[in-house]
Each structure stands twice: as C-alpha cells, then as structure tokens.
Write a protein that binds this DNA or RNA. Structure first.
Length: 354
DNA sequence: GACTCGTGGGA
DNA sequence: TTCCCAAGAGT
C-alpha cells in the first residue's frame, strides 16, 4: 500500500505536485488521514447539526423508527409536523397497533408512498405481539420488521441503540462518492463496492461510529448536496477527491420518474379522496365523477348524492381526481393496485381505508 | 437488476 | 414551466 499524504501544510514540495494524489477509490487511506476525517466531521457535526426531535435526548427507539420510515424518500421539513402528531397520538408501538391500519394511512397525510404507513402499522403490530412492545435492538431483528430494509435497520441500530452499524443512505453514498471516490455522483443503485467502502471508513470505536454515520448523512443533506454543493462550507473540502480531480461532471444522467398520466398519479388522487372522506366512498361515484370527463365540471359534491356534507378537503380531492380525466381502464388498474396493496378495502360497493 | 410506489418545493 | 430529487423497500 502506497503511503498517502495526510493533512500536511502545503509546503513548496507538496504544492509542486502536478496532481494531488488521489485517495484509493475503495476508501483505503492512511490511518492518520482517516482519523483526521473522523475528527473533522465530528467537530463539524457538533457545531452544525440540526436540532431534530428524533435526535433529542428523550427520543425513543420507536420514535427513531417512525422518523426513519417517514424520511424514506421524503424531506425532513415535510416529515417534522407529521412525526410530532404521530408521537403525540401513538407514543408506543402498541398504541398504533391498537388502531386500524387506515388510521395510520390517514395520519400519514401527504408524505407520499402511503404503503409506508401500512408497513409501520404492521411493524407496530409485530412489535406489540411478538416483542413485548419493545423494538428489536439488533440489525438482524430490525430487518425482520415490515418496511425495514438494510438502511433503516442499520440507522435504527445506530441512532436508537448506539450500535456500530454501516449506515448507507443516499446522502452517505454521495459524500463517499465525492470525498473518496472522486466522482460527482454515486452509481444509480447501491453496489457491493460502496458497502465495502462504507465499512472501511466507519470508525472502529462504537460511539464514534454513531456520530460518524450521523455526521456524514448530515453533511450530505446540508453541504454536499446533489445540486450545487456548498464546498466553501465543507469541513473536509481539503481532503475531497472530487475537488482534487477538478470536479468532473456526472458520468450518467439520472432517469427522472414519469408522473403525468401514470397509474401512480391516479392512485395518489384516489388515496387523497379516501383520506379526506369521513365515510366510505361509493365506487359508483368514482366511476361516474372521475372517468373520461376531463374538461367537464364534476358534480358538485353535495348536490345530488351522499356528499351532501362534503367539506372543503373532500371537495378539493374529488375535483383534483376529476381533473385527471382518467380513463375507465386506468381507474380500474389504480383501484386494483390499491386493493391489492391493502391501502383500500372494498365492501358492498364502497371503498374505504383499511 | 429493473420496476413500482407519492408528494411538493426549489432551481 | 419543467425538471430534479428527498434518511428506500419490496417484488
């Protein structure tokens, strides 16, 4: 292994190098250099970390799990109010498990990917029934819970139970890709090489590993962002392989997810109606009001049928679904998908949350 | 591996 | 306005 330059002052000799020596892409570095990275991010995190409620001293493992699931593909600012409502209403897993799954879906609000709410309810049920109401405190145990994958299991093990776990999320992947890999962005999907690299970079000390995981994630969220990173504010910019390489552009262009006209958009609109509805919604109303009538006015909820008492939110949700101009086949597919996923149940011609 | 699955805010 | 993308998981 070639000795690598640490955080030495820029002497004439080091300055004379044509190219700064790139760190090994697998993350292998001089132990001293690694310690310097750990210390730098530890200090930065201590000074700049956001005050998030699931990081408070009075946090519970359950609260950490709920936050991690809510944060899957959803920004912090949108999660905050919903997380607070959940914790106030369901402070323990058994509290949530005691209610119908539909209540979790309704309280999920507009966070998106409502299956997460369903799985959180399922996880709470398992925790209450099989774990005496306490979260498993190992990655393996957590991984067995519905909706908990490799990332969430590692994150809860680390942040709720103080375990040394290799946490790899989209932020950490990006920071590692730049800082160590010298690339603008990580690969489209998580690779085994990234996991090995993350394991190598993780501090051996348990307590420091927990801070490191949180710090790298926080750096990715606040400084080393996907678009226009704030390198001037970065505590480890001097050690960044991507900067040393002249900030080469991404080698691929991410494929955006289609949205307009997709089944997904229809599912979302139907779910918004079911969340807003106080009573089960007739399937007949969906068929009549929401299919193939773009450009026409939806029947005013309240004029001729059982939405006589429809309030603003329900009216808005119906209007939005109507505006999609969904065809019969697409509505059928969307409903079938929701029923198959358990996000909706149908009985006696009515649709409602589970 | 490739797909699917919501939502809203900022660039 | 359009596009990008945010603490992924399950099939």
């Amino acid at each position: 292994m070639t000795p690598r330059r640490g955080a030495v002052p820029a002497t004439a000799a080091t300055r004379r190098r044509a190219q700064p020596e790139a760190p090994a892409p697998d993350g292998a570095r001089d132990p001293e250099q690694l310690r310097a990275l750990h210390a730098a991010l530890e200090d930065w995190f201590g000074a700049e970390a956001r005050d998030l409620p699931w990081r408070e001293h009075d946090r519970t493992p359950w609260g950490v799990l709920v936050s991690e699931v809510m944060l899957q593909q959803t920004p912090v600012v949108r999660v905050l109010p919903v997380w607070r409502e959940w914790m106030a209403r369901w402070p323990r897993p058994a509290d949530l498990a005691a209610e119908p799954a539909g209540e979790a879906v309704r309280a999920w609000g507009r966070l998106g990917y409502p299956r997460r709410a369903l799985r959180l309810h399922a996880a709470a049920t398992v925790i209450a029934a099989e774990h005496d109401g306490e979260l498993p405190d190992t990655e393996e145990g957590l991984l067995a819970l519905p909706g908990v994958g490799t990332y969430t299991a590692a994150a809860v093990a680390a942040f709720a139970f103080g375990r040394r776990a290799t946490v790899v999320d989209t932020n950490i992947r990006r920071v590692h890709a730049r800082l160590v890999g010298g690339e603008a962005l990580p690969a489209p999907s998580l690779t085994a090489a990234e996991l090995r690299r993350a394991a190598i970079l993780l501090p051996a000390d348990r307590e420091r590993s927990v801070v490191w995981n949180a710090a790298v994630m926080e750096l990715g969220a606040l400084v080393c962002t996907a678009r226009s990173p704030r390198c001037a504010e970065c505590p480890v910019a001097g050690a960044c392989a991507w900067r040393a390489a002249g900030e080469p552009p991404p080698t691929y262009t991410p494929r955006g997810q289609a949205w307009h006209g997709t089944d997904r958009q229809v599912r979302g609109a139907v779910m918004a109606v079911l969340r807003a509805a106080e009573q089960p919604v007739t399937r007949e109303l969906l068929d009549r009001e929401m299919v193939g009538s773009a450009g026409s006015e939806p029947s005013a909820p309240g004029s001729t049928h059982h939405f006589a008492e429809a309030g603003g939110p329900l009216r808005d949700a119906i209007t939005r679904l109507h505006a999609l101009g969904t065809g019969p086949d697409q509505l059928e597919r969307a409903l079938a998908g929701l029923l198959a996923d358990g996000l909706a149940v149908e009985a006696e011609g009515h649709l409602r949350l589970p």
